[in-house]
Computed example of a mutant assay.
Amino acid sequence: MTTDIREIISQLESHRLWIETIGEQGEKLGIDEIDLRNVDLSQYPLDQAYITACIFDGMNLNHKDISSSLLSSSTFISSNLEGADFCKSNVSYVDFTNANIKAARLADSECIETMFVKADLSDANLVAGLFDETDFRNAILYNADVRLATFEQVLLQGAKLTGLRGLEEAFIKSINIGTPEHPIILVGEEARQWLQLKSLNNE
């Protein structure tokens, strides 16, 4: 985690050049286990990058393009990601606890064991996402779009699901409305009906 900030900036600039020249110049970003909290990322693209096990906690990354990137095991705890684009990104094992992810785009993303505990995903685009053992406990999913998304062993205890859209077109395999220690698993049509009932609640 002690990597020199100037070295990181140099890599970010090289990545920007790589994107601008469609790979003719510069180099694709590949960083691992870097604390980025002291780096101003506002002017650097983060799409099409390998950014694994990095720390973005508490950062303001609203409307940031982070699409088509590998972000496995990174943390965005309490970050502002409103309107951010994670389309086609791999965010498996990422921690988004308490993050503001309102109106963000997670379409076609891979979310295996991703933590969205207490995160706000109101109006988020989750279309065709893969949610496998994803933790949405106490998350806010008001009006989120889950068309063509796959739900398997997804944790939903305490989640606010009012207005959840596209359930009839989603692949609901199983959900856990209990806890990891004491699971209450609903499968298939029973799981879909539970979600549909919750989506009608005006809580």
Rank of each mutant, 00 (worst) to 15 (best):
Asp4Lys: 00
Ile5Phe: 00
Ile5Pro: 15
Arg6Ala: 11
Arg6Asn: 15
Ile9His: 00
Ser10Met: 06
Leu12Met: 02
Leu12Pro: 01
Glu13Ser: 08
Ser14Asp: 12
His15Ile: 03
Arg16Trp: 03
Trp18Phe: 06
Ile19Trp: 05
Thr21Ala: 07
Gly23Glu: 06
Glu24Ile: 02
Glu24Phe: 04
Gln25Ser: 08
Lys28Cys: 01
Leu29Arg: 00
Leu29Pro: 04
Leu29Lys: 06
Gly30Asn: 13
Gly30Thr: 03
Gly30Met: 02
Ile31Gln: 01
Glu33Trp: 01
Leu36Ala: 00
Arg37Ser: 00
Asn38Lys: 12
Asn38Ala: 05
Val39Arg: 00
Asp40Thr: 06
Asp47Met: 09
Tyr50Asp: 07
Ile51Gly: 02
Phe56Ser: 00
Asn60Leu: 12
Leu61Val: 11
Lys64His: 14
Lys64Ala: 12
Asp65Thr: 03
Leu70Phe: 04
Thr75Ala: 07
Asn80Tyr: 10
Asn80Val: 06
Leu81Lys: 02
Leu81Ala: 03
Glu82Ala: 04
Asp85Cys: 07
Cys87His: 11
Lys88Tyr: 15
Lys88Ile: 08
Ser89Val: 04
Ser89Cys: 04
Asn90Met: 03
Asp95Leu: 04
Asn98Ala: 11
Ala99Trp: 05
Ala99Leu: 06
Asn100Tyr: 10
Ala104Glu: 05
Arg105Asn: 15
Leu106Thr: 04
Ala107Tyr: 08
Asp108Arg: 14
Ser109Thr: 04
Ser109Arg: 01
Thr114Arg: 06
Lys118Glu: 14
Lys118Pro: 00
Ala119Gln: 07
Ala119Met: 03
Leu121Thr: 02
Ser122Met: 10
Ala124Asp: 02
Asn125Val: 01
Asn125Tyr: 03
Leu126Val: 07
Val127Trp: 10
Ala128Ser: 15
Arg137Asn: 15
Asn138His: 13
Ala139Asp: 12
Ile140Ala: 09
Asn143Pro: 02
Ala144His: 12
Asp145Lys: 10
Val146Asp: 12
Arg147Gln: 12
Leu148Ala: 11
Leu148Gln: 13
Phe151Met: 09
Gln153Val: 07
Val154Glu: 13
Leu155Val: 11
Gly158Phe: 13
Leu161Ile: 13
Gly163Gln: 02
Gly163Phe: 05
Gly163Lys: 10
Gly166Trp: 12
Gly166Ile: 14
Leu167Glu: 08
Glu169Cys: 05
Glu169Trp: 12
Ser174Trp: 05
Ile175Asn: 08
Gly178Leu: 11
Gly178Cys: 10
Glu181Ser: 13
Glu181Trp: 08
Pro183Leu: 10
Ile185His: 07
Gly188Asn: 15
Ala191Cys: 09
Trp194Tyr: 15
Gln196His: 08
Leu197Cys: 02
Lys198Asp: 07
Lys198Ser: 15
